[in-house]
Design a protein around this nucleic acid. Structure first.
Lengths: 194, 194
DNA sequence: AATATACGATACAAACCTGTATCGTGTCAA
DNA sequence: TTGACACGATACAGGTTTGTATCGTATATT
């Protein structure tokens, strides 16, 4: 067995993963090749293939990690809001902030579904599962908040969210999503009486 | 000079264009190669390159055509609505119908911007110009409809639209956009007093 | 100190990509 | 009828892709 390395500040597996995460997100999955990834992260190509049997596996790993990061952020964002209604709103305020950032290149899941539209592609399935989970969470919060029709409100907010992600990818930091939170607010107000 | 052919039911240039339009839309721009395009449309590869100097030119031609088709449909959809408010609503009702169709694979412009995120890519610029035009049209109609803040309403509706397109590409015909029109209705109602 | 293994570098295989070159055929116009 | 040209088919060039094979080195454990 090998020890979890402590000498090296960052393991090759982590280096290539971080490089892949950044480059996939900014430039797209198909546009970034494994040679570029290896060179850019300063590791050998064989080291990459030792840790990730194929490029698709690396893409899948990135998406799984993105899913975890999403929910970690999500929980952090909504945890201080006292009511379900305010939890929903807090998410959209935070999302509006994020998509107005230069670090935002849209949504990794929407991006992979666009580049690999076939439903049986592993990355597409991970993306779909993620989006369904978000949709379900929106339904849950909408129901708890006392929405007249939780499924309807959840889907309406869902459209807003993905529209904001795409606005960021298309326009950059200054995009139509600067009115995301007010839109979410309006939809919530219509469906939930204070 | 050569005559505009009347014998042949459909010219090679049109055949390859139609094939390209369908395949780019469904499978993505990067996923479809010129060899596939030539073979699938039953024309020689040199014939393709005679009419379109490069694949990027073919992509650009498809996007320009998509833009024209969009506005042709748009005008047709809103022309019978008596008021600006109802024109906006009519568009979103029609869009909800379309994105619930098996023929919908999202939005050609969002797709190209995702696959070619670099802002200087010709296709990306065409996509951006298209989206800005739609945004401007939304603003115009919102203003005419007497919205309190036309720019805000326009952007809110814009997010809804692109969210619906992405929902269709990701989920297929049964997607969260089944509540697109009601969402647009709610946002309009909040911003415009009847 | 010796052995096992993780690593970087490099070369390579096979498939794919865009774009070009060539050639034979059919069609249309003069 | 004849010459120009659009066309389909095919081969090709040069580059890029994913994934494998090889080899020398450094590290880490025994």
């Amino acid at each position: 067995m090998h020890s979890t390395r402590v000498k090296k500040e960052v393991a090759p597996k982590d280096k290539v993963f971080q490089t892949a995460a950044q480059m996939f997100y900014r430039h797209g999955y198909r546009a970034v090749g494994v040679d570029t990834l290896a060179a850019e992260s300063g590791i050998g190509k064989m080291t990459l293939y030792r840790h990730y049997p194929s490029k698709d596996d690396l893409i899948a790993a990135y998406l799984k990690d993105s899913n975890e990061v999403f929910w970690r952020n999500f929980d952090e964002i909504i945890k201080d809001a006292p009511t379900p209604r305010e939890k929903l709103l807090a998410f959209f305020v935070s999302l509006q902030d994020y998509v107005s950032t230069a670090a935002c290149y849209g949504c990794p899941f929407l991006n992979v579904a666009t580049e690999y539209p076939e439903a049986d592609y592993p990355g597409h399935q991970i993306a779909l599962a993620h989006k369904e989970a978000v949709r379900a969470k929106f339904r849950e919060l909408s129901k708890e908040a006392g929405a007249r029709d939780p499924a309807v409100l959840a889907d309406q907010l869902f459209l807003l969210m993905d529209g904001a992600y795409m606005a960021a990818r298309m326009f950059g930091p200054e995009n139509p999503a600067s009115h995301l939170a007010s839109a979410a607010q309006a939809l919530i107000d219509v469906q939930i009486e204070k």
